[in-house]
Design a protein around this nucleic acid. Structure first.
Lengths: 155, 155
DNA sequence: TGGTATAACATGGGAAAACATGGGAATCAA
DNA sequence: TTGATTCCCATGTTTTCCCATGTTATACCA
């Protein structure tokens, strides 16, 4: 049994006429080994689908209930939004999930989708949108951490 | 179980037609003994591949997970960049990994590659590029710390 | 010390398994 | 019945696994 569970890498897969997409094999392995389930919801900040293990949302719920006055009201609202939107997405024997119309529309996904690892979460993007977004992020990160541009011998 | 795990030394290996490279035996030993896995990604600052143990990234993911900041925007950008690019690279029974096109291209590696230890991380370079880089680093060090020029007898 | 036996390693190639993806049949709901 | 969803089979491709070989490094013995 492995010690760590991280959603990683960037994988481009097709979405067929029925709205099915192959979940990257690495992601499936994580689901099987944890015994948890994939949960997806519309990202609050970007035109993409966000996904994670149900375990993580459970952890979030626990954090909220354990520190009510600790959290801001907005954090509370955001959490509500996520839970209101989230839904389980099991995959079939060939490893595919069927994404809902709502999710696909929000992410502007039609015939192909890019899975982007985020550690404990992942995102699903329209390929062109992700290309732009990645570029934006790279520029943003270099702006915030200009040391990387130069020598960046350490990080 | 050993106490310390350091990627060290500089090793030149061939990259075959399938994109396979032997991971230096010392590195393999570290992976086995830690029970972790090799993870590689494009260096943010240099034209080379960077690698480390999955444990290291897992630590990062845990920090974010526990930061009570499920919806932070800056965190979002950083995690996308790091985890979106990283990927596990398990090695087969003969000790080889299969580097992706993306990584090889970024590091301009074609038929041979140099592994350079960096402690908790390591880098994989195109041999010519590494030669130049090493020279650059040595000169840089002497410029910053001229005292080394006198004393620094090396083998 | 020198020389040889032994083990570890890097590397090539081919066989087997895993994967993404298309399509059809069975199942269910409105 | 119509439309949607689930399940299963088929296929081409990629990736993984395993065997074979030559080379290098290490251990051992005289």
């Amino acid at each position: 049994m492995r010690k760590t569970f991280l959603f990683m890498d960037t994988v481009l897969n097709k979405v067929d006429a029925k709205g099915r997409v192959s979940l990257p094999a690495d992601y499936r392995a994580i689901v099987k080994e944890t015994g948890s389930e994939i949960v997806c919801y519309r990202s609050l900040s970007s035109p993409c689908i966000e996904g994670c293990l149900e375990d993580l949302l459970d952890k979030l719920a626990t954090q909220m209930e354990d520190s009510l006055d600790f959290f801001s009201a907005t954090q509370d609202d955001l959490t509500n939004l996520v839970f209101g939107d989230a839904k389980r997405y099991p995959f079939d024997s060939t490893g595919r999930v069927m994404l809902s119309e709502k999710l696909l529309k929000h992410a502007q996904i039609t015939d192909s989708a890019v899975f982007v690892g985020k550690g404990r979460k992942f995102q699903i993007w329209n390929p062109e949108n992700w290309e732009k977004e990645e570029k934006r992020i790279r520029e943003q990160v270099l702006k915030v951490r200009p040391s990387l541009k130069e020598a960046g011998r350490e990080s």
